[in-house]
Every structure is written in C-alpha cells, then in structure tokens.
Amino acid sequence: MPCAGRGAGRRGCFRKGKDLVDRRRFLAGVGAACAVPFAGAPLLAATASGTVLTATDVHVKDYPTVEAVRWIGQTLERETGGRLRIRQYHSGQLGRESEAIDMARYGAIDMTRVYSGALNNAFPLTQSLCLPYVFDSVAHMRRAMDEGVGDTVLRGFEHRDLVGLAIYDSGARCFYNARRAIVTPADLHGLKIRVPASDIFIRMLRLFGANPTPLSLGEVFSGMETHMIDGAENNMRSFHSSRHFEAARYWSQSNHSYAPDVLLISKRSLAALTAADRELMIATARQSVAVMRALWDRSDSAARKAVVDHGVHTNEVDLESFKHASRPLLQEYLRKPELDTLYRRIRDLA
C-alpha cells in the first residue's frame, strides 16, 4: 500500500511489507560499505540476468531528473537486451543529497543526482555554477553547459572517486515565504530562510539581510508549518512538487541563481562495467540531457500555473538591488583564478 497523508509526497516513503524489508536490507548494506570505504566491491549487483545499478534522487517520481534517469535505465536495458539496468530510489528514500554523495564515492550506491550547491565544498569548480547572477537565464545556463563549461566542471569530480555524467537544469531559484512579498533585499531582513548547505548560499542570504538556515529539502515544509523558518529559495518546479506552496503564499521572482544539478556515478561502479558498457553509459547519460530539458520546460510551466491557481501571490523584484547586494560575495570568489576563468567563460556566452 502506498504511503498516505500530507507528508507522503514531500518526504518520500516506502510501501509496507516487502519494500520496507528491502529498504532496511539496503541501508544495512550501505552502512557496511561506508564503514569500510575501500574494501570489497561496489553495490553494483551482478545477477544471473545481468547487472543492476542503483540510482538515488531526493525528488519525487515524476520529477524531470528522476524521469531522465529512468529514461537512461530504459535505454540501457533496451540496448543491452536487459543485461544492464537501473533500479531507482526516488523521493529521498535513501537519505539526503549529502549522504548520497558519500555513498556514491564509497561505491555503496552507483548513481545519484544532486544539486550543485551541495557539492561546493568538496568540489570547488562547482562554485562557479552557484555564484549569484552568474547566469542570466535558463537559455544562458544551457548554452554555457553545452559549450565547454559543463565538461570542465564534470572533469573535476574524478579526483574524489566520482565521475560526472551529465548536468541537468534546476531552473531559476527564487524566494518564497509565508510573510510578505520580497521586492528588494530590505524585505528579507529578519526572515529565516532555508538554504542548501553551501557557503555561497549562506553568505549570499546574509548579504541580502536574511537569516540563512541550512536544512534538507525534506525538512522545509514542517519548518514553515512550525515557524522554525519563514520561507526558502528554490525553483518553481520544486516549490510545487514539494507542496511548499501550501505553507508559503508569496513567490518573488529574484532569479538569484540558476545553479544546475549534476548526475554522478561512482568511479568504482563505472570501472566495474565492460569497456563497451562504460561507453554506452556515458553516451546515454549525455543524451538524457535533452530528454530532461524537454520534461523540465513542460513541467515548469505547469507548476507555475498550478501554484498561481492555488492562490500564491507572485511578484517581480528589483533585480539590480539584489545584484548590487551580492557583489561583495562575487568579488571574493573571483579572487580564485580557476573560478574567475570559468566565470569569464560563462559571461562571454551571455
């Protein structure tokens, strides 16, 4: 029986019975793998009928990134006659993004889709994607990723036991809250706003005058209900799929970040495949970007209509005031030569 109740879709869940047992067994195996990081084989499972890779995502089952990875699995299964498959755990069933990153590094899971902001501290090149107002639009972000910037960032994962497969959209990140419309940074003063666990986002919110509160995505709704936080910042698709619009009635189109998502695979898991299967995996993952983008464009428009129909108040902001307030943060990070180089490449494609 599927999970029921208001929180089921937001926090993710397993069905009772066999699925619950499977989850416990899986997490027990994950714990053993992470306890001895470099001993034994990765979780990638070889069975009599072929190889099954495990993929995780904190988003719900119909989210574009989840559907794109599902498409990868279907393509691999078709191209290999069922010999290579992907088993997905969506809706945060196996934990937070920070946990998924470590599990993939240690080979306890094979693949994961994570937000680039969650990668900033361990993988510095991803900081270039999360700087405030580095991208002007979704089209600009896609152009930069397609014309070399994405490949440079993806190569930066290999020194820490991961391989970057693809970069997916994450839309325009904007502010939403339960208190008031945000037009200038002054309107954020005193508000407790959830941010991802990224130094860039924490410091950016402080420059805007807000009180940044790092929380996992699954804690945001209850945080707003209990008034632990006043709001958050995210893209419209996540605002809708997480049902945060039920608690936050104000959406302000700040567009302060277009930081994308990254699809990663354990270096050990990829190495365990045959050369032909590795090539197929990498090529299929790259092809999935177009699939994801088409899904994103349709679902983003539908999500916006749904939240407006629900009664959420939307407004434009004074973009120049936000850009001005975030400038000290941008200048500080651009003192790093590698980030300055990537920033200039991105801006040249604006």
Rank of each mutant, 00 (worst) to 15 (best):
V30P: 00
A290G: 06
I167H: 03
F201Q: 14
R83C: 01
S137D: 08
G171C: 08
G311Y: 10
Y250I: 08
A166D: 11
R304V: 03
S252P: 09
A247Q: 13
E79K: 15
R173M: 11
S299C: 03
P214S: 05
I229D: 06
N234P: 00
L43S: 05
R160Y: 07
M141I: 04
Q88W: 01
G311A: 12
P214Q: 05
R180M: 03
V30C: 00
L217I: 14
R78E: 15
F245Y: 15
L207H: 12
V36W: 11
A290E: 14
A271S: 07
D102R: 15
R206D: 07
L44A: 13
I167R: 07
A197M: 12
I265Q: 10
L280F: 06
C3E: 04
L162G: 05
V291Y: 13
R173S: 11
D318M: 02
Q127Y: 02
L330A: 05
D309E: 15
L53G: 08
R113H: 10
S216P: 09
S128W: 00
K267V: 01
S222A: 15
I167F: 04
R180P: 03
E246S: 05
N120W: 04
P328F: 03
E67H: 00
V138P: 02
P124I: 08
S242L: 09
R243P: 00
R87F: 00
A325W: 00
G218A: 14
Q253F: 06
L342P: 01
L339N: 01
F14W: 12
A35M: 07
Y106R: 15
L94P: 02
I86W: 00
V153S: 08
V149N: 10
A248Y: 06
H227M: 07
R268N: 00
R78V: 02
I182K: 12
S252Y: 10
G81I: 09
L295H: 01
R23N: 07
H310L: 13
D62W: 10
R15Y: 04
A28R: 14
E279G: 13
L131W: 04
